[in-house]
Amino acid sequence: MDILNALVAITNYILIPATAYGSQLALGALGVTLIYGILRFSNFAHGDTMAFGTAITIMVTWGLQAMGVSFGPLPTALLALPVGIAATAVLVLATDKLVYSYYRRVRAAPVVIVMVSVGVMFMMNALTRFLIGVDDINFADGARFVITAREFRDMTGLAEPLPIRSSQIITIVMAALIVAALFWFLNRTRTGKSMRAFSDNEDLALLSGINPSRVVAVTWIIAAALATTAGVLYGLDKSFKAFNYFHLLLPIFASAILGGLGNPLGAIAGGFVIAFSEIGVTYAWKKVAGYLLPAFEPDGLLQLLSTEYKFAVSFVILIAVLLFKPTGLFKGKSV
């Protein structure tokens, strides 16, 4: 029984939250890695693109709620999501036209484009704050739980509860659908194939008649869709605060680099590795230890690192990857 309780506690505090968080990171890292593969720079503005998309989605959600529209048990934000994606796509396409296209034309050094993306990041950050302010916003509505703690206890008779929040299930299902659609697009459609060809060898792709501006535009639109979805799912799961999305940049980059920059499959794997290590290292294991080893009574919480240092986990993994395998787990581009 104690072993079951321990398993339930692990599922409740680690498996489910880390899977949900990992899905959000994977979606974010997919956007970063696609931009890297095709446009060949690390987009520091990605976190704030997520924040912008989420802000628009929240504002549309408020509008829908004011009109009395709801999505049944699902959060209204999912209805507003397409509008958020469209607005973000318009924003990033405009940014590309006004800002990035010039640096592509003069073939600027990658580090210059990275700096430009930092400038874009701050403008997007200011734009988001201007639109929606800096407050913590909770915009999740609909059913809060798929299974509440009490229902689970009545069902199983275990001491340990296992509530399942609907936002977590929605995150995991949405992420799975989007990843499946993305891989279908990249591997089966003509545009997707031309994107992969462009990423593998730009000159060869141009020679075989691929239209570069079309590839770039499609990449930005997909990146906007991924960023907005990741941002909305993260906001539903936790809450929306513009500055938190800036802090997500580090785990997202760590995921993309761990998986190998430019490699979509790697970005997903990286996202889950980072999420599971982050949550596993900052979780207080005392409860689980109490079930498994009743004789062992520790003084502390058995927490390896306090939650304030969760970013240190991504950072340590990032440093280890840079030291030992700069191309990442799945061969990405390195130099």
Binding site: F41, S42, F44, A109, P110, V111, V114, H247, L249, L250, F253, A254, I257, Y309, F311, A312, S314, F315, L318, I319, L322, L323, P326, S334, V335
Partner: peptide, 21 residues
């Protein structure tokens, strides 16, 4: 020592991390 000698973006990302930490 860790991030230099790799591609230029890596230093930017590593410094972003150390700054936050």
């Amino acid at each position: 020592k860790t991030a230099l000698g790799l591609r230029s973006d890596y230093l930017a990302i590593a410094t972003l991390g150390i700054g936050e930490i």
